[in-house]
Design a protein around this nucleic acid. Structure first.
Length: 212
DNA sequence: ACCGGGATGTTCT
DNA sequence: GAACATCCCGGTG
C-alpha cells in the first residue's frame, strides 16, 4: 500500500446510492490486512423495504441511525456476520453493504481465518466471507472507520472509483423482504475476479447477475 | 460446471 | 414459528 489517505467524515454523508459507487476501490485496513472494495450494495433506510431500518430503529439496527463513517455489523443465518458502511447524518438510516473485496496484503492471516477458502479469490468474495477474513464480529458493530477505534479503517490510496461501475440488482432478497428488480443498487468493479457469486438458485451466472 | 440441502441462532411476526 | 442482505459440501452431468 502506498500513501494511504484518510477520508473526511463528509465523504459518508450522502445517500447510500451516492456513496456506494464512491466506495469502490477504497481500501479496508485492519492491522496487516489490506483489501480493495470491489462490490457493494446500497440500502436506503426508511424508504427501502429491503433495509433493516425500514421498520424503524431497533437495538439491532441502531448503528444505522447513528453518525456516518461507522460500521454496521449484523448477524444472519445463525452463523454469519455482514458489514455495512453507515451513510447520512445521525438520525437518518442509510448504509452500504460490503459484498466483496480484492485481498492485497496480509493474506496469510486471512487464510488462517478462512480455512474453507480453497483459492485466494475466495477469501473475501462475499459479505460474510470478507467479515471472516477480517475478523469482523458483533463487537465491531459501531466501529468508527475514520478514527479506527476498533483497528479497522477505510482509506484511499489515490485510486479513483470506476467512472462506470458494473450495476445489478441486489442479492439474496426475497420478494417478501422487498426485492425490487428495477433497482440497480449493486455496484461492482468491472472484470474483478473477487466479485461474489450470484444468489443461489437464481439461475444466473456471475457475469449475468452483475450487468452493465 | 451447476444444482440442492443443511447448518445454526437472532430477530420479528 | 418463520424468515433471514449466507456459505459450504456433496451430488450429478
Amino acid at each position: 500500500m502506498s500513501d494511504p489517505l484518510t477520508l473526511d467524515l463528509s465523504f459518508f454523508e450522502g445517500d447510500s446510492t451516492t456513496v456506494a459507487p464512491k466506495l469502490l476501490n477504497l481500501l479496508l485496513v485492519r492491522g496487516r490486512r489490506v483489501a480493495r472494495i470491489v462490490e457493494v450494495e446500497a440500502y436506503a433506510g426508511a424508504s427501502d423495504a429491503a433495509s433493516h431500518a425500514y421498520r424503524g430503529k431497533t437495538p439491532r439496527n441502531a448503528t444505522m441511525f447513528g453518525p456516518p463513517g461507522h460500521l454496521y455489523v449484523y448477524f444472519t443465518y445463525g452463523m454469519h456476520f455482514c458489514a455495512n458502511v453507515v451513510c447520512r447524518e445521525a438520525g437518518v438510516a442509510s448504509a452500504v453493504l460490503l459484498r466483496a473485496l480484492a485481498p492485497l496484503e496480509g493474506l496469510e492471516e486471512m487464510r488462517a481465518l478462512r480455512p474453507a477458502a480453497r483459492r485466494d479469490v475466495d477469501l473475501c468474495s462475499g459479505p460474510a466471507r470478507l467479515c471472516q477474513a477480517f475478523g469482523i464480529v458483533r463487537a465491531d458493530d459501531g466501529a468508527d472507520l475514520v478514527t479506527g477505534d476498533h483497528g479497522i479503517t477505510l482509506v484511499s490510496d489515490g485510486f479513483a472509483p470506476p467512472a462506470a461501475p458494473l450495476r445489478g440488482t441486489r442479492v439474496g432478497l426475497s420478494a417478501k423482504a422487498g426485492a425490487d428488480g428495477a433497482l440497480l443498487w449493486r455496484y461492482a468493479v468491472t472484470g474483478d475476479q473477487n466479485v461474489s457469486r450470484p444468489r443461489p438458485n437464481s439461475g444466473l451466472t456471475a457475469a449475468e447477475t452483475v450487468v452493465r
